[in-house]
Design a protein around this nucleic acid. Structure first.
Lengths: 251, 251
DNA sequence: CGCGGTTGTGAGAGCTTCTAACCAAACAAT
DNA sequence: ATTGTTTGGTTAGAAGCTCTCACAACCGCG
């Protein structure tokens, strides 16, 4: 542990740079993040920062993975802290609260993808972890309410082929972008989730419920965060709560 | 009529520039749109284009309003063409088809807002028109199914104050950004919609249904278009249809 | 102490938006 | 037909960006 000082200092300035970048993101959007400006704000010249980040994209990537991790942890924490009966609501509200507290970071991961940027493998892993948390919360709602209606969303239209290499083949056929390694990774993680939920068939009811939960919550959160509700004369949080209720009722 | 040639030519090159910009958008995202590159592709130097567009932002704005108009017309057309009983499904499918056919344009209006960009007044007007179409489709679903359950989403939490200057005051209090004229305009249009639907109270059941329709459809479409479903081993269109069913059933 | 890797600097290439000055062609009017 | 004005295009240049390179300064280790 001799030269640990160097590394500590290095990590420290990296962290500082990311903090400044986050501030720039908050006030000027993704495109407002400038390596030069960050360096200047830190009291050094532009090219110096390239000793710490290979490129602007690498900095953005790190910002994104950090954000993913933060959100995933927040959600998991909310679920862990809540009583089993409240887990679903706790998860949903934690998601919205987090997004409203830092809209730019929400848009950073769920907004328009950065031009040349392609998500690194770590992202898929963390995203899968988040899906796991949502699954957990969804299965918790079953405990408190009972699985009521439940149309299977996964296997209607010649739907989700059984286990095994499911996602691999299926995705390659209809997916807009080619199947990358990270996506295969995510698929593996999701299969793990499928088999992890007791008594849950791949593509079954619970998966559909989790998917709907994800898309519906994202629907109101993303529109809200982007200000699309502005001037419409209603409280987005009321709409959000209504969606939670609908989901709990088993829609 | 005399100098109409000039204007015709002018409009023509503006249109050509926008077409090239759209092509650039499709392959490089929003940030990939470059005035210089467009001009070069049209066979002239960069600054020449500034005779036609005051700034890059103005070009983007025009792209956005065009897109809004296109989508609004597509939706309205789909609703008009369908039998009353099928109007809701037709509207929803038209929305998704349009988005899947040109993902970048969908993200252009519903993705992360462009850094410095602020929507022009026309946008609000067209957006209100789109909401009208959704309303129309939602009221049509009432004809074929009956209004079933229906929790009022607009007026729970001290909810939507009655008519008059509703949206104005309400939005200023909780909206993230300040109330601009265009937002007030949108609010007025929405109030018009409220009173336009026969027997509908402001903030009533139908408004909640339309809002939920919007957010849910956007939820699955936006995640799909951004490739967030990649590698998950299911068909997004099945999920979309399931959401349509849930909405029809009165969720 | 001295040696070596790490960190910072300034210069500069190549890109961007956008302004300024200048020139030519097309239209309008006397 | 010869003016004058408006419009479309050019090159030059400012200010910004990312990113590379060569060089100097420092910090820690032996």
């Amino acid at each position: 542990m001799a030269t640990a000082r160097r590394e500590r200092y290095r990590k420290q300035t990296r962290e500082e740079a990311k903090a400044v970048a986050l501030a720039q993101l908050a006030e000027s959007g993704t495109a407002g993040i400038s390596v030069n400006a960050i360096a200047k704000a830190m009291g050094m010249t532009g090219p110096a920062l390239y000793r710490y980040f290979a490129s602007r994209d690498e900095l953005l990537t790190e910002l994104i993975t950090d954000t993913y991790r933060d959100l995933a942890e927040t959600l998991a924490q909310a679920v862990a802290d809540a009583a089993p009966a409240d887990r679903f609501r706790a998860m949903a509200r934690a998601l919205r609260d987090w997004a409203k507290r830092q809209p730019d970071r929400y848009l950073l991961i769920y907004g328009t993808p950065v031009p040349g940027y392609h998500a690194p493998p770590e992202t898929a892993e963390i995203a899968a972890g988040m899906m796991r948390t949502i699954f957990e919360a969804c299965s918790a709602v079953g405990d408190s309410v009972g699985d009521s209606v439940g149309d299977s969303v996964g296997d209607a239209d010649g739907g989700a082929d059984g286990g095994g290499a499911t996602a691999h083949g299926a995705t390659a056929s209809h997916g807009p972008q080619p199947l990358t390694e990270l996506e295969a990774e995510l698929a593996r993680h999701l299969e793990g989730v499928d088999s992890w939920v007791p008594g849950e068939q791949p593509g079954g009811e619970l998966k559909g419920r989790a998917l709907r939960t994800w898309t519906r919550l994202h629907g109101v959160i993303s529109l809200d965060v982007q200000g699309q509700f502005a001037g419409m004369g209603f409280d987005p949080s009321v709409l959000f709560e209504a969606e939670i209720d609908a989901l709990v009722r088993g829609g």
